[in-house]
Structure formats: structure tokens, C-alpha cells
Write a protein that binds this DNA or RNA. Structure first.
Length: 982
RNA sequence: GCCUUGAUGGCGGAAUUGGUAGACGCGCUGGAUUCAAAAUCCAGUUCUGGCAACAGAGUGUGGGUUCGAUUCCCACUCAAGGUACCA
């Protein structure tokens, strides 16, 4: 009987579904284990072979842990809010919900086909109202909280109000906006309700603020930095301006230190931790304020090198800095305005990309140096970013290269404050340099000088030690339709929360998904979007006749909102009273293994840690880090195929110019080479490289033709790079009559490894693989391809090896001429047991360190060995099927079932390793030296007398090297001796 | 520039704490089976020389530590990913 994988796979997938085999209980005597995948965005293109890599790995782990006696939670869902569905809706008018629904169906079919053991009863979709209700609810919890720096945790905002009532805010140490005025209890009582709300807003963990954004008037939307190219929008090429808009922000900066500290507690890949550390960007230094001469104001700066303060020769403010307009003297007004204008036109990214050009402008104002009393000029310059630190720096040209370049450019003095260091060429950024010419810190090394200067600053009340973070608060508003609506309406200009737990606020229907004519976000198009408030007033998007209406918030939440807590929802996905029930949360607690791509390092993986910590602080979750271990699976790359179009340009070949001609790869290379030779000899040049592929018409009087590489769909190309010419011709009408210049009767394409993408026609679909080889082959092959964490090109060349292995394995359980199923009840031999236990050991170890690729190899070895031993014994083949079942579950189920077992193999215990079967072949040799028995050695091979003598010699020699100590072990191999030193 | 990771046959990739480098698979070569093909099975396959036994070289480059280095240390080259006037 042959291995009909299609029948087997369909049969068992149905069995798993019908019997709910992978449904996890929220209560169970077994220990829990939570295996999580990053849920996908259901795009219109469906899954390609790159997507399932991580899912296969986690599925193997989940199945393995079930065999090991754990209660495994292995859920899946969809991150179904997102931009592509909205773009599609704008183009076609199709409702995003509908497109999303269709895409999800495709995804589900494809996922099922691969045989994953997901518990689909817990599926979540971020765009589902039953789900986003809780995303909105979490938003409200953030709004109702502030961050107490003393307690290092988030607390209810009501507590803060109580303190304000009792004693004002002078003792409050909270993460909040800068420039909060100190007030007393008395003053608090006298504030109006609105004033009180405005003050509280400065403490809330989510707050409205004027944020500078990249606004594209033509598209009516805010663009991310990477959506802008050369100052115009990537899409459409419309101008973009920097504009202040009122937007919701998340006070993630309050958690900067805890997000940093938390990394020590979790087992995540070091590169990923590094990029989070980098992103948070902690730096220690000091705040220093400089008094502006003839003004009542001060410039606050942050510096990591307060010890270089005696080297300050100017100050630089970001052009956007508040102080600029107030301190600029009349003489410089025009020049400063002009400079500000010029920089505001450049996006932040442009400014950062263009680091070579030095520009700046003197303001005419000066500060007083706090220690020397010297007059220090104030400049503005776009190398200072408004968004970092205080938007101002004390410039120390001798100690900072940027300040140095600026000073050189504008002829500002460069005082040297380092002992024996030459600064005539460049600044000295070395922290080991000794400070000089600096009054009371002269002669000190940097570390000591920093301590001393901070002490002095604090004594004088003009500065203090400070830790600064690069991390910024996260903007949380999007001018989009397809996202979670904010549960917010406005009353007297102040935001009010809508209690969605009792009064759900759903995404309304709109006719158009574009912004409104007057520039409001797409939700402004909603007509009958209204909600009755408890105050008996109508909250609505638009004015309703004769009623007082309050405006609803029209922005939606960003993509990361829904994905920042979904892993907790899986624990209790159907709960309609809570975001997740206490009991379920306490049982599952956290994710034991999380698998996903590293591209989310500073997005999803940072925001979700932030929300987790917040919810933990408020007593809503039992742990403050949600994923104990994380693995980044590497990307599977595509291998693009190229055909080479020959294009004529000169007169005599103009007839052919109308024809499309494709030249086979080697022929094309040959033609180019020949030309190169001709060209070079013509010009008398030898050995000079001339690129003739694209140029050539300029290099001589003769106009050469050239070749243009064109992506061909990889499905037209076989494993030996041969193009299916007919299929290619039918692909596009313009290729219908194309001619092909062949080599050996074939058209050979060029190959290149690139990211898998629709536009590169290099996408390989898992459906085709499942069709041709089966899901088990796909699963094993993807694992066999190489280490999980490494990026690798998709290449089907080796798939026949894995498929052949499964066929071979199938044959082990079938015997006789017609291949009838048969296993014998005989006792197993030593050799057979050795093979089995070797494999158990290897698979156990491999899964423990995620080396799935090598366990596929060990299965192959096992099956080869058992085949040559002609082993068909149940005692060996039953455990073998269990071993393989995490990798190839369908074939394992089928064989398990054929061997007369009831129920799913996934419920069976993993075979137990017995080491005694592995050491049986070692032998103890008595070793004598110079005729005297000295010791015995355990050796794993049969050795000749000569070899034993050689081993003894080697042993003695080693002993001499070790000055008498005995070596731990000697490995003796016929012909060679190797000692292992103890 | 900085941070991180990596570099091993024709190819994908193995190699426990430093101890027979190249497991396993692909490809290739030869053979069996077949009228023939597919499928399957067996043998060989790092490179150089040799019919062979065998000899020499060999894990990006150059040094070092060690009885012994793919593995540890130093310097460099290249590649991939992240990040960037962060004061």
C-alpha cells in the first residue's frame, strides 16, 4: 500500500476538528504550558511558505509538550485591523470588514491544511467588536491612571485627586508633563472643574497633546517618517508639511526604566534585547540651567558630560525651541526667521539624513557661564533636535565633534580643556582624558570630575544629576477608518470616557473611507453615529436637531493597540464580562514560549510589554512580563528568476526592435563577454572593465544593444533553472510572440535571492507544496532547511529527500510484496533498541534547544538503520511514530491507528529514554605499561594490540604534559590517537 | 559611524565543555532492477597527486594560547540585520 498523503492528511485533520483534540482546559491537573505565535495580519495575498516557518516550530513544540504531559495552550487569531484593507476599501468601496473576512477564510484554510494543533475555540480578531471593546476598556484604564515615581507603579488617578485635595501637589513625584505649577490644597479647591481636569490630564497615562506630525494636505492624513521621500509623500508625491495636531499619546516614557530592567528577567534573544535597550536609550548626565543675560529666563540643557562645562563656548537651541523668538535681538530677527522657515520645510528625517551640511544662525543673545561668568553666545542650529532632551545643548567644541564642526564653520573659539591633548584637528570624545583649565576640577579624570561638578551644580541650585531617555511618548491617534474607535467624546473641549463595558461604541458605517472635505478623519463621514449619554445628552459625530450634542473623537487607534494584549485574551477568549477572568489569568499566567519575527523588536514587543506592566500595576494581571522565552524565526527568502530581454537600439536592427527577444543566461553572458573583448581591442584597452550590459551605446560609434533583466514568475522555472517557455508566453500578452535564444535547447534563467514579495514574482505558496508532497513533507522540509533563527532562501531542491524519507518510513510499517500493513510482536534486538534510544535522546535534546533541523536528520538516520535491520517490530515502531508525531503528525496518526491503537497519538506519552541501550558497545580494556598493570580504560571500539599500545604511549605522554595528573579520557581511533586532558 | 549576528565541500547545512571536520539531505558518478522509463535499492563523492595502498593541503584572512583550535584570544576582510546629528 502506497503512502497516499492527501487522503491521510484530510482524514486526520477532520478527526482533530471533529473531536476537538487540541482544545485546552482552563483547569487541569497537569502543569500548564503556553505556546504562542505572533498572530498574522490577514493580507489579500494569503500565506506564502515563509509565514508558516514559525508556526511549524511552535506547533512542534506544542505537540511535544503535550506528549510530555503538559496542559498546552496553543491559540491563534488575526491582527485584523490594518492599512491594506482600508486602502483596498478606498479604491474599490468594498467594506474592510468584508475583505478582512474573506482573507481570514483563506488564511484559515491554508493553516488547517498544514495540520496545526491550534485551539480554534479561542480565536481572537482585533477588529471584532467583542474584542476591541476591551482594547477600548484598557485605554480607559490608562486614562484613569497616573504613574507614581516613588512607588514605581501606575495608580488610579482618583488617588491623585485625593492628595491634591488634602495637600496640593508639592509632594507628588509622578511621571507627567514638564512645567507643572506647584499648587496648594486651597488653590486646588478654588480651581474650576475644567482647570482641575486640565491639570489631571498632565498626569494621565494617556493624554491629548499638540504633537508635531508630518501632515499631507493632499492626502488629508498624517504620514509616518518612512512614508515621506524627499519632502513629498511616497504615495502620489504630494507636499508634506510639519504641523501640530491634537493627538492622543501614551506615556510609555514613565515605564522606560522598568522596560529596561524587565529585560533581565526574560529569556529573549540578545540582539532583540539590544535593540530595545538602544531604543529606550538611557543616558546618565546632568541638567544645567544657563541664565540668559538681560532676560528673566534660563536655558535648560541636558548633557552627559557636565565635566566639560568649562569648555563651553556657545549654546545651541533647536530652531523650534520656545525661547528662540523671545530672546532674538532685533538685529537678528530677520535672519533667525529665515533660518527657522528653511528648517521647518525639511522633515525630521531629511534633517537627520543630511548630516554633512552645517547650518545655523546667531540669535544676538547671550547666557552667563555659571562658573566663569563669561558671556556665551546663543545660536540656533538644526543639528539640535527639539524632541530630545530639552531641545538645547551646551556646546563644547573641544569635546564633541558636532560642536567642533559647528564652531569651525562659524569661527567660534574652541577652548581646550584637556590635558596634553591636541585638538587642532578634531574634538576629543575620549572619556579617559584628564580635565584641565577648569578651575576646581582641573587634573581630575572625567568620572571624578562629573561627580564633583554635579555636586557643585546642586549646591548652587542651577542643575542636578539626571537620567535621560531617548524613548518618546507614543502617539496613539491615527486619521484612519479601519481601527478601534476611541471611547471618547468632548465636553467643553475636555475628553470624556464612554464606559464601553456597558455601552459599546462600535465602528460606524461610512460611505467614503477618505478624510472629509474639511479635513476631518474618515470617521467624520459617519452620519448616524451617535450614542446616548447618561446625562441625557446626545453624543454624536454631528449636530442632531434641537439637542445638545457632544462631539465624538474621530481618530482611531493605531495597529499596535489590539496586539498589545491579545495574548492575555486567549486565556479566556469568550469572556464577555471581563477582558479576561482572574481564574484563567492566574492559571495560565504568561507565555512560556513566544515565536515571531524580529522586525517587531521596537514596535509590538515594546508596546505590549508596556501595557502588560501597566495592567499588572493596576492589579489586573498576575505577572509584569508576559513572555518568558522568545525565539525569532528567520525570514524565508525567495529566489527570484530573471529572463534577459535583448533590446536593439541602432538603425540596422530596428525591425527586430519591435520584436521581444529573450536570451538564455549563459548565451547572454557570452555575448557580453565577446563585446567586451571587441570593445577593448578597438580602444586598445586591455584588462579595463567595461560594463556593457546597460551602457554600450556611448562607448563607440556603433550602437550596441543591451539586456534588461525581467522578473519571471518562479512557477515557470524548474529546479535546474529551465524556463517553461509556453507558460511564460501565456503569462502576459506582450510576451505572446516573443522569441527565445536558447542554449542546448533550453532557456536558462538567472537567479537571485530576495525578500519574498508579490511584485518580484518569487512567492511560493504552501498550497502547491501540500498538494504535491503533503503537509508532513512541508513541515519537515521547512525545519530541515536550516536553523530556525537564520534567514534562508526557499529552495525546493531538497524536498524530494524529505518526502522520500516519509515514504521510507511508511514502508517500515508495511511488508511483503504488496506492501500490506504489518508489524511483528517479536522482541527487539540490542541494535534496534540502540537506534531507537539514540533517536529519543537526540530529539529530546534538539527540541530543548530549538535545533529542529538536526532532529529531522536523526529521524532519517533511524529509518535508514531500521530499514537495513529489516526491523518491523511493534516495540520499536510504536515509539518511533510518537517521536515523529510533532513533526509529521498526520502520518504518525495514521500509523498509530493502523497499529491498532485508539484515539489520537497526540495524547500519548513521549517514549522514555533508557541510557543503558546506548552504552552497551563500550568495552573496558586493561592497560599495562612496561608490563605492569596500571589502570583500566573504557573504550568504545574494538582495538588491535598495536593500537592499545599506542594509546598507552599517548596516555603517558599526556601525563608528562600534565605534570603527573591523569588525563580524564583517551579516545582511541584505529590509526590515530587523541587524548582528552582532564 | 555605532550595535548585533554570521563566514565550513558543487549546494543547504552537522560537529557535546577545545579532542576522528564535513553528520543528514540535495546534486553528481557508477551499478542493480526494467524491453524502456519513472519509482526503488546498493556503492562512491572536501580538494590536489596516484590504478591503488597512500601522501599532502584544508573550516573568510593574518597572528596568538594549547600536546591538540571550526570552537578560545587579538587584528583585519566581507556579508546580513538593526540604528543614527541622542548632546
Amino acid at each position: 500500500m502506497n503512502y497516499y498523503f492527501n487522503e491521510i492528511e484530510a482524514k486526520w485533520q477532520k478527526y482533530w476538528f471533529d473531536n476537538q483534540i487540541f482544545k485546552a482546559d482552563n483547569q487541569n491537573g497537569k502543569p500548564k504550558f503556553y505556546v504562542l505565535d505572533m498572530f498574522p495580519y490577514p493580507s489579500g495575498a494569503g500565506l506564502h511558505v515563509g509565514h508558516p516557518l514559525g508556526y511549524i516550530a511552535s506547533d512542534i513544540y506544542a505537540r511535544y509538550m503535550r506528549h510530555k504531559g503538559y496542559n498546552v495552550l496553543h491559540p491563534m487569531g488575526y491582527d485584523s485591523f490594518g492599512l491594506p484593507a482600508e486602502q483596498y476599501a478606498i479604491q474599490t468601496g468594498q467594506h474592510p470588514a468584508k475583505t478582512t473576512e474573506e482573507n481570514i477564510k483563506t488564511y484559515r484554510r491554508q493553516l488547517d491544511q498544514i495540520g496545526f494543533s491550534f485551539d480554534w475555540s479561542r480565536e481572537v480578531r482585533t477588529s471584532n467588536p467583542d474584542y476591541y471593546k476591551w482594547t477600548q476598556w484598557i485605554f480607559i484604564q490608562l486614562f484613569e491612571s497616573y504613574y507614581c515615581n516613588d512607588a514605581q507603579q501606575a495608580r488610579p488617578i482618583s488617588e491623585l485627586e485625593e492628595v491634591f485635595r488634602a495637600e496640593g501637589n508639592y509632594r507628588i513625584n509622578a511621571a507627567a508633563d514638564e512645567n507643572i505649577e506647584i499648587f496648594t490644597a486651597e488653590e486646588w479647591k478654588n480651581y474650576s472643574e475644567k482647570e482641575k481636569q486640565e491639570i489631571l490630564a498632565k498626569y494621565r497615562l494617556t493624554y491629548l497633546s499638540e504633537t508635531e506630525v508630518n501632515w499631507c494636505p493632499a492626502l488629508g492624513t498624517v504620514l509616518a517618517n518612512d512614508e515621506i521621500v524627499n519632502g513629498v509623500s511616497e504615495r502620489g508625491g504630494h507636499p508634506v508639511v510639519r504641523k501640530k495636531m491634537k493627538q492622543w499619546s501614551m506615556r510609555i516614557t514613565a515605564y522606560a526604566q522598568r522596560l529596561l530592567d524587565g529585560l533581565d528577567k526574560i529569556d529573549w534573544p540578545q540582539p532583540l534585547k539590544d535593540s530595545q535597550i538602544n531604543w529606550i536609550g538611557r543616558s546618565e548626565g546632568a541638567m544645567v540651567s544657563f541664565k540668559i543675560i538681560d532676560h528673566n529666563e534660563k536655558i535648560e540643557v541636558f548633557t552627559t558630560r557636565p565635566d566639560t562645562i568649562f569648555g563651553v563656548s556657545f549654546m545651541t537651541l533647536a530652531p523650534e525651541h520656545d525661547l528662540v523668538s523671545r530672546i532674538t535681538t532685533d538685529k537678528y530677527k530677520d535672519a533667525v526667521e529665515k533660518y527657522k522657515d528653511a528648517t521647518s520645510k525639511r522633515s525630521e528625517r531629511d534633517r537627520m539624513a543630511d548630516v554633512k551640511t552645517i547650518s545655523g544662525q546667531f540669535t544676538g543673545a547671550y547666557v552667563e557661564h555659571p562658573f566663569t561668568g563669561k558671556k556665551v553666545p546663543i545660536w540656533i542650529g538644526d543639528y539640535v533636535l527639539a524632541s530630545y532632551g530639552t531641545g538645547a545643548v551646551m556646546a563644547v567644541p573641544c569635546g564633541d565633534q558636532r560642536d567642533y564642526d559647528f564652531a569651525k564653520h562659524f569661527n567660534i573659539e574652541i577652548p581646550n580643556i584637556f590635558q596634553d591633548i591636541d585638538i587642532s584637528e578634531h574634538a576629543c570624545e575620549d572619556k579617559t582624558a584628564v580635565i584641565a583649565n577648569s578651575d576646581f576640577i582641573s587634573g581630575m579624570p572625567a568620572k571624578k570630575a562629573i561627580k564633583r561638578i554635579i555636586y557643585e551644580l546642586e549646591q548652587k541650585g542651577i542643575g542636578k544629576g539626571k537620567v535621560n531617555y531617548r524613548l518618546r511618548d507614543a502617539v496613539f491617534s491615527r486619521q484612519r477608518y479601519w481601527g478601534e474607535p476611541f471611547p471618547v467624546y468632548y465636553k467643553d473641549g475636555m475628553p470624556q470616557m464612554i464606559d464601553v463595558q456597558f455601552l459599546p461604541l462600535r465602528l460606524p458605517e461610512v460611505e467614503k473611507y477618505l478624510p472629509t472635505e474639511d479635513g476631518k478623519p474618515p470617521l467624520g463621514n459617519a452620519h448616524d453615529w451617535a450614542w446616548d449619554s447618561i446625562e441625557n445628552k446626545v453624543v454624536s459625530n454631528e449636530k442632531i436637531d434641537n439637542k445638545t450634542t457632544f462631539q465624538l473623537e474621530l481618530n482611531t487607534m493605531p495597529g499596535w493597540a489590539g496586539s498589545s494584549w491579545y495574548f492575555n485574551r486567549y486565556m479566556d477568549a469568550e469572556n464577555s464580562n471581563e477582558f479576561a477572568g482572574k481564574k484563567a489569568l492566574n492559571y495560565w499566567k504568561d507565555v512560556d514560549l513566544y515565536i515571531g519575527g524580529s522586525e517587531h523588536a521596537t514596535g509590538h514587543l515594546l508596546y505590549s510589554r508596556f501595557w502588560q506592566k501597566f495592567l499588572f500595576d493596576r492589579g489586573l494581571l498576575p505577572v509584569d512580563e508576559y513572555a518568558k522565552k522568545l525565539i525569532n524565526q528567520g525570514m524565508i527568502l525567495g529566489t527570484s528568476a530573471f529572463v534577459y530581454r535583448w533590446e536593439y537600439e541602432n538603425g540596422e536592427e530596428s525591425d527586430k526592435a519591435k520584436k521581444t527577444i529573450f536570451v538564455s543566461k549563459t548565451k547572454m553572458e557570452k555575448i557580453i563577454k565577446e563585446r567586451e573583448t571587441i570593445e577593448n581591442s578597438k580602444r586598445g584597452v586591455i584588462g579595463e572593465h567595461v560594463d556593457l550590459v546597460n551602457v554600450s551605446k556611448n562607448t563607440s560609434g556603433n550602437k550596441w544593444s543591451h539586456f534588461t533583466p525581467i522578473h519571471a514568475d518562479v512557477s515557470f522555472v524548474n529546479a535546474s533553472n529551465e524556463l517553461d517557455i509556453e507558460a511564460f508566453k501565456n503569462w502576459r500578452p506582450e510576451y505572446k510572440d516573443a522569441e527565445f535564444v536558447l542554449e542546448d535547447g533550453k532557456y536558462i534563467v538567472g537567479r537571485e535571492v530576495e525578500k519574498m514579495s508579490k511584485s518580484k514574482y518569487n512567492v511560493v505558496n504552501p498550497d502547491d507544496i501540500c498538494e504535491d508532497y503533503g503537509a508532513d513533507t512541508l513541515r519537515m522540509y521547512e525545519m530541515f532547511l536550516g536553523p530556525l533563527e537564520q534567514a534562508k532562501p526557499w529552495n525546493t531542491a531538497g524536498i524530494s529527500g524529505v518526502h522520500g524519507f516519509l515514504k521510507k518510513m511508511w514502508k517500515l510499517y508495511h511488508s511483503g510484496e504488496n506492501g500490506i500493513f504489518y508489524v511483528s510482536e517479536e522482541e527487539s534486538t540490542k541494535e534496534e533498541l540502540k537506534t531507537l534510544h539514540k533517536t529519543i535522546k537526540k530529539v529530546d535534546e534538539d527540541i530543548a534547544d530549538f535545533s529542529f533541523n538536526t532532529s529531522v536528520s536523526s529521524f532519517m538516520i533511524a529509518v535508514n538503520e531500521l530499514t537495513s535491520l529489516k526491523c518491523n517490530k511493534r516495540k520499536i515502531l510504536e515509539p518511533l511514530a510518537i517521536l515523529i508525531s510533532p513533526y509529521a503528525p498526520h502520518i504518525a496518526e495514521e500509523l498509530w491507528n493502523k497499529m491498532g491503537n485508539d484515539g489520537s497519538i497526540s495524547k500519548v506519552e513521549f517514549p522514555v529514554l533508557d541510557l543503558k541501550h546506548l552504552v552497551e558497545s563500550t568495552k573496558t580494556y586493561p592497560i599495562s605499561f612496561n608490563g605492569k598493570l596500571r589502570f583500566t580504560m573504557e573504550l568504545s571500539l574494538d582495538l588491535s594490540k598495536d593500537e592499545i599500545e599506542a594509546a598507552v604511549l599517548a596516555h603517558e605522554k599526556t601525563k608528562q604534559h600534565l605534570a603527573g595528573r591523569t588525563p580524564k579520557k583517551i579516545i582511541v581511533v584505529p590509526g590515530k590517537i587523541v587524548n582528552i586532558v582532564g
